[in-house]
Amino acid sequence: MSGKLYGVGVGPGDPELITIKAHRILQSCPVVAYPAPDSGQSFARSIVAEYLSAEQIELPIIVPMRVERFPAAQVYDEASENIAAHLDAGRDVVVLCEGDPFFYGSFMYVYERLAERYDCEVVPGVSSIMTGAAMSGIPLAARNDVLTILPGPLPDDELRARINAADALVIMKVGRHLARIRTLMGEMNLLDKAVYLERVSLAEQRTMRLADMTDETAPYFSMITIYKGAEPWIDTANMNVTKYD
């Protein structure tokens, strides 16, 4: 009898921000797979390291972390077949995913390859977007506000059009696009409404007004939130500001 495949969201970084269900599955599965860079440790694994046991089999999914394109299909093809071998042997496998598995999550590529062949369950996780709002003290949206989520690599013209049409926004994948996005926000007179958030829920978290962020680039785990709606009490002047120690 085949094992069961689980895709589990482990949240934005704080080990306490995983669900009780995720914790139960994580500790009961004999095989744990997770994305890992080709140099350095896996962030997903580091979040739940204290919950792992020495008896569990670990399967790192090595994903190159660099700007240039890499053969992503090959990476997930090989990882999925490695996972399938354990499932065929009757072992349950849990695949860890930062944040939520189906929100820009790497697990969706494993799911695409294996969900039709095996029993599969997806366990949602706490998104960095919701965590960022909690950490900054600035609500995302209220009443009938329309919340729009945008990837930072979009070109300026498309970002501008989508921002103009929205009441509240989150810009993900800021990274090397930080300076360009900050300039665009200045041109649109939105700097006083924009919040920069970095590594939310971690010890090195930073939250501040985008206007006060002077760096030219940002780490991978960063985002910008903008509120343009009708609620006057959502004000960046009242936000929680944190910086590196």
Rank of each mutant, 00 (worst) to 15 (best):
G125H: 04
D119R: 07
M135Q: 10
V122D: 00
D145F: 11
E121K: 08
S136A: 12
R143N: 12
M135W: 06
L154H: 02
A115F: 12
T131I: 14
T148S: 12
D145N: 15
G152H: 05
P155Y: 03
A134D: 13
V126E: 02
L154V: 13
I138W: 02
S136E: 05
P139V: 10
V122A: 11
P155D: 08
M130E: 10
T131V: 15
L140D: 00
S127F: 03
V126A: 02
P139A: 09
C120I: 08
P139Y: 07
I149F: 13
L150P: 13
A134G: 13
L147R: 01
N144H: 13
M130N: 15
I129N: 00
V122N: 02
T131E: 05
P139M: 15
P139W: 05
L154C: 14
L140K: 01
P151M: 13
S128E: 04
R117I: 09
P124Y: 04
Y118S: 09
M135V: 11
D145M: 10
L150V: 15
D119G: 11
V146L: 14
T131L: 10
G152A: 09
E116W: 06
I129M: 09
G132Q: 01
V122M: 07
C120Y: 00
V126C: 05
G152V: 15
P124K: 02
A133E: 02
P155W: 07
V123F: 12
G125P: 11
E116R: 07
C120E: 05
P151L: 14
T148Q: 08
M130P: 06
G125L: 09
A142I: 13
T148F: 12
A115N: 05
P151Y: 08
S127D: 04
G125K: 01
L147S: 04
D119K: 06
P155K: 12
G125Q: 05
P151S: 10
V123P: 08
S127K: 01
G132L: 09
L154P: 02
A133W: 04
D119Y: 08
D119N: 07
D145C: 12
T131W: 03
R143F: 13
D119M: 11
A133S: 14
N144P: 10
R117W: 07
A134R: 00
A141W: 00
A142R: 03
M130T: 15
L147K: 03
V146G: 07
S136F: 09
R143I: 11
A141T: 04
T148A: 13
C120A: 15
E121Q: 10
A133C: 14
A142G: 09
P139Q: 05
Y118D: 11
M130D: 06
D145W: 09
M130Y: 13
R143V: 10
S128D: 06
N144A: 13
V126P: 01
T148L: 11
V122R: 01
G125E: 02
Y118I: 09
P151A: 12
E116H: 10
G137R: 02
L154M: 11
I149Q: 01
A142E: 04
M135S: 07
V126Q: 00
A142K: 07
A134Q: 08
P153F: 05
I138E: 00
C120S: 12
L154A: 04
E116T: 08
G152R: 02
R117M: 12
R117H: 10
A115E: 03
T131A: 15
I149A: 08
Y118V: 09
S136H: 07
A115R: 01
I129S: 00
